[in-house]
Structures are given as structure tokens and as C-alpha cells.
């Protein structure tokens, strides 16, 4: 488990991470989502003790990274696949990492085999393609058979086969009960890989909860209805629906949230209301994500997450003007 509380990092005047608190649970793949430059890598470096937080604290299974004994046996990480000496062979790169944590040499060949690099283990890492470098980075992360794994944009630049391989790999690691924390700027990728999400924008927490909730919320759709009997329809809908999340006027039309277009059509038919237009407006995941993260300054973030992340809870970070998420 990874717990961050009030994590903050300033580089000179730039605030890279701003009072960030989140937890990453074990046995699940947790996606760390945010646009480029949102502070994901900085946060990950702070988790690993590479960068020192300006304030706040982050712990792994209750301990600071600095206090872990032979940390590679607890935490494995792939932050940047190019962090290797180009003239060192893949095997030698893993050998020195293994030596640093007293990991037996046999384990080096084991992880090379696991990521499918046995054939090129003696080749210099500088000549590796991006995909091969990523595999070497994953091998390094797995070396100490760690309970906690961090991956920073692991699918960046990979071909579809490589992406699929990594995705399956993460699920396997989580199924083995490990904590898997993986960052990405691609929501669609995270929707397929992760079970939980931590979403940040401009260094601040925007959302923490399950992917399902996020997707449901983010893709929340509205229906645009035009009718000469709008007032009657509105009353009926109000009387009808506990599910309805919003009814707003949009010129001569109504924008209705939380109800499927079919239900509105049936309600109108049952009450002899003429409909001129019944138009479902579906927002895309990407759009929602951009809107949520694009201008985070305007959003209030909740610093501490309550125990359960119900529908009301995970809205903490959503915009004040509700419904704007689904702009046609």
C-alpha cells in the first residue's frame, strides 16, 4: 500500500505537486492519471525517495522509502526505460541492481526470461528499441520480487502487441496480491488497465476512486428534448424521477440528465406529449478528462477521501457548474 499525505513539491517558483493525498491499495491496479506535466513523475520520484518533498509525506506499507531495508525487494519501479548506461549489457545492468540488494544471480536470468530478453541479454542496452528498453525496465522492477510496483507511462511508444503484453502483466501482478501503481496520460488506456484511479491536474488531486465510478461520472450523458409542451414534460419528469440529476433549459429545449432517452420518449408517449426532438448527448471519456483536468485551478479538490467512494463522494472535484461535462 502507498499512502501520500499532503505531498507538495516546489521547483523554485513552480509548484509541481500541490498538497496531494491519496492511497494505493494492494491487490489492485491503480491508475495514476493526469495530463502531461500534471506532476505524475514528480510524485513517483518522491514515492521512491529520489526527490525530496517540499512538505508532506509518502509511505510504502507504513515506511518511508529511505527506511526500507533492501528497497528493491519491497518496491520495484520503472520510471524511465532509458535510465541505463548505453554501453552496459542488459544482463550487467540487472547484475549490479541485484548485487545492491543481495538478490541471487539466478534471479537475473529469471526476470530476463520473464520479459523475453534472454536472447539479447548480452547486448548493450544502448542499442535497444523502446519496446526492448521497456521490457528491461520491467525486468529491473521485478528483480526483487517486490510487493509494490510503480510504472511511469509504461505503454508510451509501444506497439499494440507490447501494450497488450504490459496490460496483461499488470493484471497478473495485481492478481498476485501486489500493489500496482501505473501512471498514464491516456484515460482510454487506464480504463482498460486499472481498477482504481488517482486523477491529478496541475499537481492537485481531482479524483480518487474506482474506474467504474469515474467512467460513469465522466461519461454521464444528457438528453436534449424539444417539444411544444415542455412545461408539462418537465413537471412529469420531476414527478417521475428520482434518477434525474438535472433539468436545465437550453433555449427552447430541455437538457435532461440521468434518464435514458427511451424512458423520456415512453413517458411522453404515455402522456400524449408531442416531441420534436429527442437527442441523446454523449460525452466522450477524453472530453470529460480534459475538462476535469484542463483547468484545475477552478476546481476545489478534497484533501481527504472518506472511507467509501460513493456517488456523492467522488464528485468532490467536479466543476461547480454541473452538467458542463457533457457539452454536445
Amino acid at each position: 500500500m502507498i499512502e501520500a499525505t499532503g505531498l507538495t513539491k516546489h521547483y523554485g517558483r513552480t509548484v509541481a505537486v500541490d498538497n496531494l493525498s491519496f492511497t494505493v491499495a494492494e491487490g489492485r491496479v491503480t491508475g495514476f492519471l493526469g495530463p502531461n506535466g500534471a506532476g505524475k513523475s514528480t510524485t513517483m520520484r518522491m514515492v521512491l525517495g529520489l526527490d525530496r518533498p517540499t512538505s508532506g509525506d509518502v509511505r510504502i506499507d507504513g515506511q518511508h522509502y529511505h527506511d526500507l531495508h533492501q528497497p528493491l525487494r519491497t518496491v520495484g519501479a520503472l520510471l524511465d526505460a532509458k535510465w541505463v548506461h548505453p554501453n552496459r549489457s542488459a544482463r550487467d545492468h540487472l547484475r549490479w541492481l541485484a548485487a545492491a540488494s543481495k538478490i541471487p544471480r539466478a534471479r537475473v536470468d529469471e526476470v530476463l526470461d520473464l520479459v523475453g530478453l534472454t536472447g539479447v541479454a548480452g547486448k548493450r542496452a544502448g542499442g535497444f528499441s523502446l519496446g526492448m528498453s521497456q521490457r528491461l525496465g520491467i525486468a529491473a522492477a521485478l528483480l526483487g520480487d517486490p510487493r509494490v510496483l510503480l510504472f511511469d507511462e509504461p505503454v508510451n511508444g509501444l506497439d499494440p502487441e507490447g501494450i497488450l503484453w504490459i496490460r496483461k502483466f499488470m493484471h497478473r501482478l495485481a492478481d498476485e496480491g501486489r500493489t500496482v501503481f501505473v501512471s498514464s496520460h491516456l484515460l482510454s488506456e487506464m480504463a482498460l488497465t486499472a481498477q482504481d484511479l488517482v486523477v491529478i491536474g496541475r499537481g492537485k488531486l481531482i479524483y480518487q476512486g474506482t474506474v467504474e465510478d469515474f467512467v460513469e461520472h465522466a461519461t454521464e450523458s444528457t438528453v436534449l428534448v424539444r417539444s411544444p409542451q415542455l412545461d408539462r414534460l418537465r413537471d412529469l419528469l420531476r414527478a417521475e424521477g428520482s434518477e434525474i440529476t438535472e433539468i436545465t433549459e437550453d433555449g427552447d429545449a430541455l437538457r435532461i440528465g440521468g434518464v435514458a432517452s427511451a424512458a423520456i420518449g415512453e413517458l411522453a408517449a404515455a402522456n400524449n406529449i408531442v416531441l420534436h426532438e429527442l437527442n441523446p448527448q454523449v460525452g466522450s471519456l477524453e472530453q470529460a478528462f480534459i475538462q476535469l483536468t484542463g483547468d484545475t485551478v477552478e476546481y476545489r479538490t478534497e484533501e481527504h477521501r472518506s472511507e467509501e467512494h460513493g456517488a456523492g463522494e467522488h464528485r468532490a472535484g467536479e466543476p461547480a457548474g454541473n452538467g458542463e461535462v457533457t457539452s454536445g
Binding site: R45, L48, G49, L50, Y65, H66, L68, P71, L72, V75, A77, L79, D80, K82, W83, V84, H85, P86, L97, A100, S101, A140
Partner: peptide
């Protein structure tokens, strides 16, 4: 300096934070 140049210093400090 090559450790800094190739950022292996990060892998190094990750393996041994002291």
C-alpha cells in the same frame, strides 16, 4: 558523472536510498 548523465544514479539511489 556518467551516472548522472544516463540517470542511472536514480536507479542506484532507488536500490540503496542511503
Amino acid at each position: 558523472t556518467t551516472e548522472y548523465r544516463f540517470a542511472t544514479i536514480r536507479a542506484t539511489f532507488q536500490a540503496v536510498p542511503h
